[in-house]
Every structure is written in C-alpha cells, then in structure tokens.
Amino acid sequence: MSDAAERSRTREFFAARAAGWDAKFPDDGPRYAQAIAELRLDAGQFVLDAGCGTGRALPLLRAAVGPRGTVLGVDLTPEMVELARAHRRHAAVLVADCTRLPLADAGVDLVFGAGLISHLPGPGTGLRELARVTRPGGRLALYHPVGRAALAARHGRRITPDDLRAEPNLRPLLAGCGWRLTGYTDTDTDERYLAVAVRTHDDRTHDDD
C-alpha cells in the first residue's frame, strides 16, 4: 500500500470513530497521567503531541510544562482535531501530517505519540520527520495505555514476530531514523506500553523501512 493510500485509510478509520472514541476507552486517563508523570518534563519545554486524537493528553502535558511551556497537538484526522480543540486553553491544535510537519528544525523537547507508531506511513518517513523537529537530546515517547498482548487480544489477534512495536524490531528502526532507544516497557496485562528514545546528534539516517 502506498503512503498516500495508508494516510487515507487512517483518516477514514478515525473519522468514523471520532465521536465515540473517548467513551470507548473511559479508563485510560489515569494511565496517561502516570506515563506523562514518569517522563519528568521540565517547566518551559516544548511538547508535540503527535497524533493527538481527541486531545486527552493535552491537559496533562500542559500541567507538566507549565504556563511558560508550549504544547502543540497535531492529528491527520479533522474530526479528531475538532474534538481536541475543546482543550484549546491547554494547547494549540491543528490538522497536520506527521510526515510533513509545519515546524522548524530542532525545536521540540519531547514528542509524545500515543498509539502513533502503527499509523505512521513507512513508518520510517514519520520517525525521521519527528527527529527533524526534535532537538538533539530531546525525546520521543511512544505510548499505549495497554501492552501489546492486551491490544492484540482486543482485536482478536496474537502478537506476531514482525510486530513493529516489539523491542528487537523497534530499536533498529529508531536507530536508522535518528533516535536511540533508552527505555522500553511492555506489560502482559492491561497496564501499558511505553518506549522512550533520545534524539541523537548524528543526523545520518537510512532508508531501510
């Protein structure tokens, strides 16, 4: 499938589900709060919520960076962004493609991506673009409020060896896109998935998606 077709499929999938998204997962809030607290953001930092969906993380990210910080939510799906704009006092929100972000180089301190990795076209193209906008030493947090096994079970599947989010697959992918994996948690229960990577100082990347 081409990147354009994949973007279109992602947009259509979330557009049809936007209105009922938060009601479908009512218990995720505390899990988001715990993950964001563990990231230990500093006051005044710039956080990009990539694939922000309905914006459930935006108030938590704002609280973490304080009034001097910057929080920006971007999502490919206009219907999701419209719902996320209910959090406009916490963050700016806009429709944008994570493979073509309207941001300058090396300005972001943390990219927070909840459920993002499996929806990035490529996905190396998106990871390289996120690296472009992140300062050297800045971080990428790939998050999901349940572990891989629990998520697969929700969809009636089992984890396969080629799962992109598995540590042996994710580590080299990130390394080829300007990131170094520094933390990895994947629980067998309904707790969470969290992979944290640091933006390297080496700008060389590889096209081996």
Rank of each mutant, 00 (worst) to 15 (best):
R199E: 04
D163W: 00
G66V: 13
A149C: 03
T134R: 04
D162P: 09
A92H: 03
A153P: 04
A43Y: 06
A35V: 11
G115T: 07
A175V: 05
A166E: 07
G124F: 08
H144I: 00
F25V: 10
G73I: 03
A104Y: 03
R89M: 04
R165V: 01
A141W: 05
P121L: 05
H201S: 15
E129G: 03
A195F: 09
D208I: 00
E12W: 01
G122R: 14
L142Y: 02
L170I: 08
G51R: 08
D49A: 04
Q45W: 09
H87R: 13
R88T: 10
G126Y: 13
Y184L: 03
Y193W: 12
A23H: 09
D188K: 13
A86R: 06
R89L: 08
P161Q: 01
L48A: 11
A5T: 14
A91V: 07
V198G: 06
A153E: 10
F112K: 12
W21R: 14
A33L: 00
D208Y: 00
L60Q: 14
G126L: 08
A175P: 12
P172C: 05
G147S: 04
A166T: 02
R128I: 01
M80T: 13
F46D: 11
R31I: 08
D105C: 03
R154H: 12
P59N: 14
H201N: 13
A64W: 04
Q34E: 15
